[in-house]
């Protein structure tokens, strides 16, 4: 319990420093928001009026405190550019990004787990070497390059899947998934290798354990030993990595959303940066940070599920 409390404390400090850091950065963005809002041919007075209204001349720390107070009471502010509520904009786009990232991670996992199992089964064997080579190639292929190749091949050449676009879930599951397949593939095809290597390394160790020898002595089949006896105790590092990868995944989704024209947080952020819409930037980054922290908290819970020893410690508190 004390450990959990300490973790939570640290979490709060991190959230505060993330948001404050962004606030500072956004505030030194070149270009004056007030000018852009006022329009090209506005007088100095008009600009000054906007500055006063937004409180742009006040101390950065005070303005940060204002903003943070707003967040805590559920008021994320409104865009300077089009007056859209930040919260509303985020709520609309977050599910889109989430879907993309979940699909990507699903693809990554469904590649990483079988490949990791096969590799670890006979380390140094032919299958292991083939998979190792594939992994090397795959990790050398950043998502934007994969995206280009996927579009070239599946959209332009074969015409199977759309190159851009997004359909809401309300249009039907398949309609929703169809344009998501290529973007999720582009993201997932980079991430699987790290997961696979981590699983492989840990599983090679687990397969040397006495309890695996006992499972063999019990007459269990190789498939059962790999899937039932070895997989769970081998997944700890991989699960930790799943949490840490959320950061990379969010970064990757910014590019992928840009390439495939997916209306998610990534595009919102790029647009906000380009228009110096700093309250919106602030909102996006805050949401990213919350998502990252939450993902890693979920990883902690997954740990407890995987390892009964952890579960017991929790129960004892």
């Amino acid at each position: 319990m004390r450990y959990l409390f300490r973790r939570f404390q640290r979490l709060v400090v991190v959230m505060v420093s993330v948001t404050f850091l962004t606030f500072l950065l956004v505030n030194v963005l070149p270009g004056d928001v007030a000018y852009e809002m006022a329009g090209m041919d506005s007088s100095e007075e008009e600009v000054q009026a906007i500055r006063d209204e937004l409180g742009l001349d006040r101390n950065v720390v005070l303005r940060y405190l204002d903003w943070a107070g707003g967040i805590l009471t559920g008021d994320w502010g409104a865009s300077f550019i089009n007056k859209e509520e930040v919260w509303h904009a985020l709520a609309q786009r977050f599910p889109v990004s989430l879907e993309l990232m979940l699909l990507a991670q699903l693809i990554a996992l469904s590649l990483a787990v079988p490949m990791g199992l096969i590799s670890a089964y006979r380390p140094g064997g032919r299958a292991d070497r083939v998979i190792g080579t594939l992994a090397f190639a795959s990790v050398s292929m950043p998502s934007f390059m994969t995206a280009i190749l996927l579009i070239f091949f599946f959209s332009l050449h074969l015409g199977w899947l759309p190159a851009t676009g997004y359909e809401p879930l309300s249009a039907g599951l398949w309609e929703n998934l169809r344009p998501m397949i290529l973007p999720a593939l582009a993201l997932g095809l980079v991430e699987w290798t790290v997961l696979m290597r981590t699983l492989r390394a840990e599983m090679i160790g687990v397969l040397q354990e006495n309890y695996i020898a006992l499972a063999r002595a019990k007459g269990m089949s190789d498939a059962r030993i790999l899937l039932v006896h070895a997989l769970r105790p081998s997944s700890f590092s991989m699960i930790t990595l799943l949490g840490l990868q959320v950061g990379r995944l969010m970064g990757g989704s910014i590019i992928i959303e840009q390439i495939f024209g997916i209306p998610g947080i990534g595009r919102l952020l790029v647009h906000a940066v380009n228009t110096r819409d700093f309250i919106m930037i602030q909102g996006c980054v805050t949401l990213f940070a919350i998502a990252f922290v939450t993902a890693n908290f979920l990883v902690d819970i997954a740990y407890a599920w995987l390892d009964p020893r952890v579960r017991l410690e929790r129960a004892r508190g």
Binding site: Y211, A213, L214, R216, A217, K218, P233, R309
Partner: peptide, 30 residues
């Protein structure tokens, strides 16, 4: 044959049972 005809008890009971499976599952699967 392993199980019904011939079976083994290892030296170290601390490491010869699977830490993430219940006792019942480890006996039951045999």
């Amino acid at each position: 044959l392993r199980g019904p005809e011939i079976s083994i008890v290892f030296q170290d009971p601390m490491t010869s049972l699977n830490p993430v499976m219940t006792i019942g599952a480890q006996i039951g699967e045999v």
